[in-house]
Nucleic acid binder design. Structure first.
Lengths: 214, 214
DNA sequence: TAGATTGTTAATCGATTAACAATC
DNA sequence: TAGATTGTTAATCGATTAACAATC
């Protein structure tokens, strides 16, 4: 388990897939699983899987494979799912409130403490998280040492919100607004942009239709 | 504008970014824009931007750049945003209904015709799109020549839904369920998996905190 | 003309895949 | 021992970046 190695984003994005598959296996399944089996199940190259697993695990045994439970733990630990990250969310609209209500983030160690909005229409969410006016954002982040901000405001307001978050000491931003954010190099912006997915789908569809006509 | 060239996913994912930026410019801005200017605004390499633009546009003029309006049209046409794709959505839960209600997809030429659910609690969405029982899915897709399916059911039901979609002739699947889908090679699955984003963010945060302690 | 900007050709970089030796 | 599986080293592939010639 080489923790100080720089891991590429490509690898990081594959790890949750392994994790989900391993967790989906019934308890009655064998206690061990080989990289080969994992690769086949997920339609991936077995060498790639093996290399990825080598990063998070301290090794499988030839002819036996990896211990399933241990591997799950290793991936979760590597991804930091075992200790909680506090986050705030800005933009208590439909999407924002849906994310606040989503309970599944617990499993990833993400805890959305509070929401902020320029015009809070209620004091608390359904689940009791407070909704504050956006003017208190930076101060709140500093006070509670919040490290992650989730932006679900309209595109036009996103940069301003990002600036406030950074002023408050936030180190990572999960950006659902369909716009580019300008941030210092030490701040990570992860864009959750549906437009990019739609672009890929749309072009594939057109190509598929052309193919059909032949 | 080389349409038959195979374009990598990496390029496709960058195009919406250019498009959004170009569209966000005020009408009062100059009619021309250079790849250099675009690159600076989006913090990208200028050669990369120029190469990407060369794929969709039939060329800019040295010393002048690209015509902004024409470039917007070219990108939209390339991405197929100019002609509508019909889609169905399966899983009329919170996320599913939020996507149905989102009006912004029009801009990408996406039209979600109908929703399906294993247990439809209402006949129509707020906006009047019908919600059918899932048993009618494959038949509906065939009848209406639907090419895209959007899966927002729980992970355990996703594969079954995907199979039905493919049986109905769907060629592209937008998968919001956090699970791997097994599909034939000519079907495109685009995964919208928050877990992958969270993995990237989580690992970055831990590294940032380590850095701080030094 | 000079200079900004384009588009192309070549070099670099990084990630994936293939080949193979080590091990249980 | 034989064979499955691991982990590593080398080769390939693709994408990004750098260098440069073309053009308005």
């Amino acid at each position: 388990m080489e923790h100080d190695v720089k891991v590429s984003k490509a690898v990081l994005k594959r790890l949750p897939g392994y994790l989900a598959y391993l967790k989906s296996m019934p308890d009655s399944a064998p206690a061990n699983i080989s990289a080969t089996a994992l690769a086949n199940a997920l339609n991936m190259g077995e060498v790639q899987v093996r290399k990825d697993l080598a990063i998070v695990s301290d090794g499988g045994r030839p002819k036996v494979g990896y211990q399933r439970e241990a591997l799950i733990d290793d991936i979760e630990q590597f991804l930091g799912y075992d200790n909680t990250t506090d986050a705030v969310l800005i933009g208590a609209g439909k999407l924002g409130l849906a994310l606040m209500a989503y309970s599944g983030f617990d499993a990833y160690g993400l805890n959305i403490q509070a929401a902020f909005d320029i015009n809070p229409t209620m004091e608390k969410t359904e689940d009791g998280q407070p909704i504050y006016h956006i003017s208190r954002l930076a101060h709140y982040c500093k006070l509670h040492k919040v490290l992650m901000g989730i932006i679900t405001v309209p595109a036009g307001a996103a940069q301003e919100v990002a600036d406030q978050l950074i002023a408050g000491g936030v180190k990572a931003i999960w950006n659902f607004a369909p716009t580019h954010l300008d941030v210092p190099p030490n701040i990570l912006v992860q864009n959750e942009n549906m437009a990019t997915s739609l672009a890929v789908l749309s072009v594939h569809l057109r190509a598929a239709m052309k193919e059909e006509k032949k």
